[in-house]
């Protein structure tokens, strides 16, 4: 695992990806700090972080696109498969390397509130709470990016696909507001979501039985729920989507709330994304 970690880190820093990612984040951190804190005079560093979250739409694909796609393209994945270590450790090694690259700009940004405090009173607790949230958000998004990179052997496709996924995650909340709050609309939206999930299961596992099980169980539960308590469905879709939104969770940190459930939520997203990455890699052995 250490070997994979070191090689991945090296690859990141011999190529452009890591530098571009870090520079990208720091440039925008600088611009927003300038705008809000220096020009605007706000004592809250968390506003900077909030404005920066949109940068991830581009930064995460840059960082994660080559991780696994490139191994497949240059056929080095055969080496990884033949190594006497499990795929879990390979994926974990890669993820930790990406996490290190993600941590670098966060560490640099950790100095900003201290610098700002020279000019006035800065709320350190909310600033650092938000910074931790920011790091967790980027950690979760890069785990998803790693998963996307495992799906294709073309870096550009991986980057494009990752961008689309990031955009969907970012605008998820806004998109759900298009679904009306009535119980019926919510029911239909949930039904469609279950079918999409079943489709994804089919895509990842190529197992029709598992996908059918998910679809039948999900739809069954929904229909049963609809029959017994149709009034509970009002606005349910919006609530579920909001509580699932990766970005929405981060905004609670901005509001100055250090939400432990959000921490658990991010860790779960990371775990699920890495698990699926390992499964995608293992699956290829069976094709």
């Amino acid at each position: 695992m250490t070997a994979i970690y070191k090689r991945e880190l090296r690859a990141g820093f011999t190529g452009m990806a890591a530098y571009v990612f870090i520079a990208f984040l720091l440039v925008f951190a600088g611009i927003y700090t300038m705008l809000y804190n220096l020009n605007g005079g706000y004592p809250n560093f968390e506003y900077v972080l909030q404005s920066m979250s949109v940068i991830f739409l581009i930064a995460i694909p840059i960082l994660t696109m080559r991780a696994i796609a490139e191994e497949r393209r240059q056929h080095t994945d055969q080496l990884l498969y033949a190594l006497p270590i499990g795929m879990t450790r390979v994926v974990l090694g890669k993820y930790l390397a990406i996490l290190t690259m993600v941590a670098a700009p966060c560490l640099i940004m950790a100095f900003y509130p201290v610098l700002l405090s020279a000019f006035g009173t800065v709320s350190f607790a909310t600033a650092y709470g938000a910074l931790i949230g920011f790091f967790l958000l980027s950690a979760a998004l890069s785990a998803i990016g790693l998963l996307v990179s495992a799906l294709t052997e073309n870096q550009a496709v991986a980057a494009g696909l990752c961008f689309v996924v990031m955009m969907l995650l970012y605008f998820m909340n806004d998109l759900t507001s298009f679904v009306s709050d009535t119980a019926a609309a919510s029911f239909v939206a949930l039904l469609i979501s279950v079918l999409i999930i079943a489709g994804l299961v089919k895509l990842f596992t190529k197992n029709t039985a598992a996908a059918a099980l998910v679809a039948v169980a999900g739809c069954g539960a929904l229909i049963a729920g609809w029959i017994f308590a149709s009034d509970k469905f009002a606005g349910l879709f919006g609530q579920i989507m909001e509580s699932l939104s990766v970005f929405e969770r981060f905004y609670t940190f901005i509001d100055g709330v250090f939400d432990l459930t959000a921490v658990v939520y991010y860790l779960s997203v990371i775990a699920v994304a890495l698990f699926l990455t390992v499964q995608t890699m293992e699956k290829r052995r069976w094709s």
Binding site: T14, G15, A82
Partner: peptide
Amino acid sequence: YLPELPPLYPE
């Protein structure tokens, strides 16, 4: 194991 295409990292 040496696969058909040597699994090398060009960089």
